[in-house]
Design a binder for these strands. Structure first.
Lengths: 140, 140
DNA sequence: TGCGATTATGAGAAAGATTCTCAATTTTTT
DNA sequence: AAAAAATTGAGAATCTTTCTCATAATCGCA
């Protein structure tokens, strides 16, 4: 079923592209850097060059298959686009990322944009902080 | 009056720090990359190394004097912290940045965080798109 | 099903942004 | 004004991402 996604996106079905899609689909964290993907592939014996990973991710982004997010730290993270828009909460202690969606915020953004004569193409809302549950998990 | 800011922040009053603060205060754009600051200083005959600029900006950030923002494009931009929090709207055509603040969004963020057991330390909301007024200004 | 044209990949070089190193300079203290 | 402490500048180093180009894989068609 992944091959369909690639074809629909107008991309040829190649081994690297399939494998990268697979990794993104299986990743429990859902948010991976290009390096993360590179290492995960290596662990599975797939020796795919970093350059290819960046290239493919950029193509996936253009095709709407993945989103590129700019968290603090300058390193881009990628997530599979599962069709439903959402924003992010990032735990600075554990790196855990939680997604959320809020109708009220979405609506306000549109209203604010309108008031400023601005047409929103995309937006990024990220909350940085800590999950109180993770409090105990102290790491040296 | 700038020297006060530096002293209050526990930073020694040095020539580069003063000049960088000045540039940030005077910049009509309000949002500058380290390079921008470097070039503006050069134009004024101040030959301050890029390394110093990054170092000082990082110190200013730690002291709460400036904010570092991660727009699309991987290059960090810096703005003077004028005490009032705000979010950003970035025009992808002209690069124009407009600040806004919305009580409702701020409140919702807190509510959402609370519901998730999350303590917000900081947040970043950026709207990407175009200003309709800027529409005519086409650039090849 | 195999060939050829086209497109993708891999490795390393290159580019861009940011940080580090360390000797020389400036600030602050005395 | 001199000594101690902190800061700066220049370039090297690092990190992330993109580019180049020769080799390899994919797809359409015979």
């Amino acid at each position: 079923m992944e091959t369909q996604d690639l074809k629909k996106a107008g991309l040829k079905v190649t081994h690297p592209r399939m494998k990268i899609l697979e990794i993104l689909e299986r990743a429990p964290e859902h948010h991976l850097t290009a390096e993360d993907i590179y290492r995960k592939l290596l662990e599975e014996g797939e020796q795919i060059g970093l350059a290819t990973i960046y290239r493919v991710l950029t193509q996936f982004e253009a095709a709407g298959l993945v989103n590129r997010l700019h968290f603090e730290g300058g390193q881009a993270v990628f997530e599979l686009d599962r069709g439903t828009h959402h924003d992010h909460m990032v735990c600075s202690r554990t790196g855990r990322v939680v997604e959320f969606y809020d109708e009220i915020i979405e609506k306000r953004q549109q209203e604010i944009a309108k008031a400023h004569g601005f047409r929103i193409r995309d937006h990024s809302l990220i909350l940085y902080g800590e999950f109180i549950d993770d409090e105990s998990a102290s790491e040296s």
